[in-house]
């Protein structure tokens, strides 16, 4: 019951219908380049964007909706969470604006309302309101080429592998998002390397939240352990001091 999106880079013509549909559905304003934007097209007003690459390649960038999202695991108040249906959604009423999610995202997706006095985190929510009612997201609905399609993640994976099998040589034999960072709900098929969609190194195939798990699990032990060590140390030192006192007294009495 985990939904996802499959984007086929070879089919995309860069018409931006998805971008424009996204803007309409989420009432996002016109995009103006701001000093804090770092030009992959994503911004607080642009939850999905088209990256143009040499050789007529258009790659749609959007939130990958990781199966085990780093952003949701680090949010101190749980403002971000992975829904059962697959979307990673954001609750602005909980958020306190620490921007840890932006730091932790391996794909560099969340954007911030830097210009607002009451700023929030902005990112694709997989049109959660629509998909929970059985509809599909605005972007896949708008795509005239069926380059980006919506469905069950497991079925999309099957479709992707089938396409690779049926068109030998057309695609790189890899479905981006199948394993990276423990797998993502948004998948890509491509004939060019899509490494640029994430930070270049060390993403790995294991879920990122695992990296902090050991440290976080040992927290109670460290807490109690340190208390025990300190109490023990204190007890030993006190005893020693008492012994020393007693011996001093004995010495004193012996001297007398």
């Amino acid at each position: 019951m985990s939904k996802g999106i499959l984007t086929d880079v070879t089919k995309c013509i860069g018409c931006l219908q998805c971008v424009s549909a996204c803007k309409e559905v989420h009432h996002l304003e016109a995009d103006e380049p701001r000093i804090w934007q770092k030009n992959d097209g994503l911004s607080a007003e642009n939850w999905t964007s088209i990256i143009t690459k040499p050789g007529n390649r258009f790659i749609r960038k959007q939130c990958r909706h990781c199966l085990e999202p780093a952003c949701a695991s680090v949010c101190p108040v749980g403002a971000l969470h992975k829904t059962k249906i697959g979307a990673v959604v954001y609750d602005s009423s909980k958020c306190l604006g620490c921007r840890y999610c932006m730091m932790a995202c391996p794909f560099g997706i969340p954007r911030y309302d830097w210009d607002k006095i009451v700023p929030h985190v902005e990112k694709c929510i997989l049109c959660y309101d629509k998909i929970k009612d059985g509809e599909q997201p605005a972007c896949t609905q708008a795509c005239p080429q069926k380059a980006t399609i919506f469905g069950e993640r497991s079925e999309l994976l099957k479709i992707a592998h089938q396409r690779i099998k049926e068109n030998p040589g057309k695609y790189i034999n890899k479905v981006w998002g199948e394993h990276e960072a423990g797998g993502t709900s948004v998948l890509y098929l491509s004939d060019i390397d899509l490494g640029f969609l994430s930070y270049p190194t060390n993403i790995g195939n294991k879920p990122l939240p695992d990296k902090t798990k050991t440290a976080m699990e040992s927290v109670p032990f460290a807490f109690v352990g340190m208390g025990g060590v300190m109490l023990g140390l204190n007890w030993i030192i006190r005893r020693r001091m008492e012994f020393a006192k007693d011996e001093n007294k004995k010495k004193d009495s012996a001297d007398e």
Binding site: S73, V74, C75, P76, V77, G78, A79, K94, C98, Y100, P209, T212, K213, A215, M216
Partner: peptide, 9 residues
């Protein structure tokens, strides 16, 4: 609002 998985929490 608790999220004990988060180091920041």
């Amino acid at each position: 609002y608790w999220n004990p998985h988060s180091p920041l929490f």
